[in-house]
Structures are given as structure tokens and as C-alpha cells.
């Protein structure tokens, strides 16, 4: 049975038409299931427990990145496949799985291409995409070595799926995360002094399985999946093939 979890913000009047269209599309493709609407009295945890008790075989998050991220954190231990129907703003997660629109999402659900994907874990929270920070004083501590940003570094990130515009390859099936350090862009006068007139310097990329994030001076908040934060120090690891996701493309 498909269980559709509509996030609380979808109760707004502006989504009425889209949700009614969604109902038709799901029925049309024969994948209509039970709909659970979140509200102030019914939180996500309660809804997922209820859905599982009623025999849910697939959990579909209807909403934005925040919806998907919250659902992932609750179904990780349940061994249920996750479907995504993007609605509202900030649907980067859905887009990175090849799901651009609601209509497309319904077709992808019906096709049911399930993939086992790696999931990142930071302390006791899970992430699907990335951890990012624009603070240049974060140190990555691994078992045998440390990676320290130098003064010319601008941002750091740990990626399961490359959602940045930096040119590196990430594969959410390889059991590794990519730790990335991005230097500041050179100004025009700095470029004059260089032999090659390149606008940017090369990023650093380290394939990693486990590390601890520390800050050189104080605990700071780092961004998880671009929609919540967690404070340093934090332990990061990858869980290989831990989540079943219904996707629309080879990620």
C-alpha cells in the first residue's frame, strides 16, 4: 500500500488545486493509496507509526526538501522505500533524484524503479545530499590525518550527491562521501600575477567514509541538506545502500 504524507504547509489554499490534480493522477495510474495530512495535532512521527501499523509498503513524501528530510530521518530503520512528490518551493532533493514536477513524480512512482542509496549520518541525524558551510576554519579529522583549510579557502562541504556547481563526481552507491574544499575566487589583479590567467583555483576533493568535523575556534552551525543545521564538533559517516528510494534517473 502506498502511503502519501502531505506536509502541513500543503493545507494552504494555494495548493488545493494541485492536490486535487494529484489525486486524479494517482488514481489514473492505479497507485492511489492512503493519504495522511499533517496538522498541528498530528505530527510526522505519529503519522508514520500509524501508516506502518496499517500496512504501508511505500512511504511517499508530498512536499519540499524539509518534508523529505524529516521523513527520511523517521523511516531509515523501517526498511520501507521512499517516494517523493515535490510540492512548493525548495525541492532540490526531488530534483537531484530526477523528479522535476508533480506530474513526472507520479509517473516515476508508477514505474517504481527502486534503488538502494547511501545515506550520510551526522551525529544522530541522517542526510541524503550534503553538509555545507561557508566557514573556512573547519577541520576534517580522519583516523590517520587531518585536512586543514588554508587562508585562501572559502567553503567546505561533504557530499553524498553533488548538488553544488563544482565539477566533481559523486556516486550515492559507492559507499563513500566526497569531502570538498573550495578556494576563494581570484580577483582580477591577483590573476595578473599568475602564469595562467584562470579565474578560479582548483577545489580539493577527498573520498571519505568517516570523519569528525571540528572548528578551530568555537562550535558553529553547519548546514545539513540545505534545510537544517547541526553544531560542531560532529561525527560524519556514510551508511552504504541504507535507503530504498524510487528514483527517476541514474543518479
Amino acid at each position: 500500500m502506498y502511503c502519501y504524507i502531505y506536509d502541513i504547509f500543503t493545507n494552504q489554499k494555494k495548493y488545493e488545486k494541485q492536490l486535487s490534480k494529484l489525486g486524479f493522477l494517482l488514481a489514473d495510474l492505479g497507485i492511489a493509496g492512503k493519504v495522511y495530512r499533517l496538522n498541528v495535532l498530528k505530527n510526522l512521527e505519529m503519522v508514520i507509526e500509524e501508516a506502518i501499523a496499517e500496512g504501508a509498503k511505500t512511504i511517499v513524501a508530498v512536499g519540499n526538501d524539509q518534508t523529505v528530510s524529516k521523513v527520511v530521518n523517521l523511516i531509515m530503520e523501517k526498511n520501507l522505500p521512499l517516494g517523493i512528490i515535490p510540492l512548493g518551493d525548495n525541492c532540490l532533493l526531488a530534483n537531484s533524484f530526477g523528479i522535476k514536477t508533480m506530474e513526472e513524480a507520479v509517473k516515476i512512482l508508477a514505474a517504481r524503479k527502486v534503488e538502494w542509496l547511501d545515506v550520510g549520518k551526522i551525529d544522530d541525524q541522517y542526510f541524503l545530499l550534503a553538509i555545507e558551510s561557508n566557514d573556512s576554519n573547519i577541520i576534517f579529522c580522519l583516523d590517520d590525518y587531518n585536512i586543514n583549510p588554508r587562508k585562501n579557502n572559502e567553503a567546505v562541504g561533504i557530499y553524498n550527491i553533488n548538488i553544488s556547481n563544482y565539477d566533481f563526481t559523486s556516486n550515492p552507491r559507492d559507499g563513500r562521501l566526497e569531502a570538498v574544499f573550495a578556494p576563494k575566487q581570484l580577483s582580477w589583479w591577483q590573476r595578473l600575477g599568475k602564469k595562467e590567467n584562470k579565474q578560479t583555483e582548483r577545489i580539493s576533493v577527498f573520498p571519505i567514509k568517516e570523519l569528525t568535523l571540528n572548528h578551530q575556534k568555537k562550535p558553529i552551525a553547519i548546514n545539513v541538506d540545505r534545510q537544517r543545521t547541526i553544531k560542531t564538533p560532529a561525527k560524519v559517516e556514510v551508511l552504504k545502500g541504507k535507503l530504498k528510494v524510487i528514483t527517476g534517473k541514474n543518479i
Partner: peptide, 18 residues
């Protein structure tokens, strides 16, 4: 940004900022 890091077969890049 065009970072020119698409070196095929390269696993680790220790760039100038680390």
C-alpha cells in the same frame, strides 16, 4: 564556477586551499 577538476580517474585532489 568552472573549477577544472574533472580529471578522469583522479580520486583525491589536494588543492591549493588545504
Amino acid at each position: 564556477q568552472n573549477m577544472e577538476t574533472g580529471d578522469s580517474g583522479v580520486d583525491t585532489i589536494v588543492g591549493p586551499s588545504v
